[in-house]
Computed example of a mutant assay.
Amino acid sequence: MATKSSSTSTSPAPGTAHWPETLRDGSRLTIRPIAAEDAAAERAFIEGLSDQSRRFRFLGQTRHPSADLIRQLTDIDYVHDYALIATTGGDDGDEIVGVSRYGTSPDGSRCECAVAVTDEWQNKGLGTTLMSRLIRIARERGIRTMYSIDSAENRRMRDLAGDLGFRTRSDPDDASQVIHELSL
């Protein structure tokens, strides 16, 4: 595991980390860990995704997420799980435009990851930015393998996974899905 220093750690405690980012089109936003206080913004983010983006993210339709799902997605323990959001500062506060997250296996050696970006922010490098930071955090925490289970139809995720070095294979349990896996 990499040695951490307080000035260069990529996974500080939630509430203390904020990373300003400029995307390839010049758009500026902030990446930070999600917090329970982001529940309303997370709900708006999910409900604002297109039907296809929601289906690809949740492998089914989740147009109006339950309170339990929102709690699960925003009340993170940050020991076994990690979740990052990309936000833009608006007049009404932060708007979430992208999310990446992982949850670890019981032994902490593997983690399943996911990423979603609002349709308006796709094709700007945000998914790559979110996943690259999440990969660094997983490596820093000693996780050895990261994987994602996705719809075989999701070309954008397949391209993103390939660009980040993930290997892709068919899901042996479901022909409509693929598994992207990265050795850390």
Rank of each mutant, 00 (worst) to 15 (best):
G127R: 02
A2I: 15
M146P: 08
P172V: 11
I96S: 02
I179F: 03
I149K: 05
T88R: 12
Y102A: 06
A114Q: 01
D77R: 05
R133N: 05
L59T: 10
S53D: 13
T129V: 15
S109T: 15
R133D: 02
P65Y: 00
E181G: 01
P172K: 03
D68G: 05
A67K: 04
Y102E: 00
C111D: 04
S148F: 04
S5R: 06
R24A: 14
S170E: 13
D119P: 09
D75A: 11
I135N: 02
S11N: 13
L134F: 02
P12M: 07
R155I: 12
R156F: 07
V79N: 09
T104I: 03
T128K: 12
G15Y: 08
S6R: 09
D77I: 12
P20D: 11
Y147M: 04
D173Q: 13
S132G: 14
G48A: 03
A161V: 08
A83N: 01
S151Y: 12
I76V: 09
L59N: 09
C113N: 05
D75G: 03
S9Y: 10
M146D: 12
D107L: 09
H80P: 00
A44P: 00
E112P: 14
A36K: 11
G89Y: 10
D173N: 14
T129K: 01
S53Y: 04
V79T: 15
R71A: 13
G125C: 07
S183V: 11
D159H: 13
L59I: 11
Y102H: 05
D119F: 01
G89D: 13
R141Q: 15
F56A: 09
T87N: 02
E181N: 02
E181A: 05
D51M: 08
A17L: 07
H80S: 12
S170N: 11
L182A: 00
I34M: 03
L84W: 09
A161C: 10
I85W: 01
F58T: 09
L182I: 09
T145R: 08
G165L: 06
F45L: 10
H80L: 14
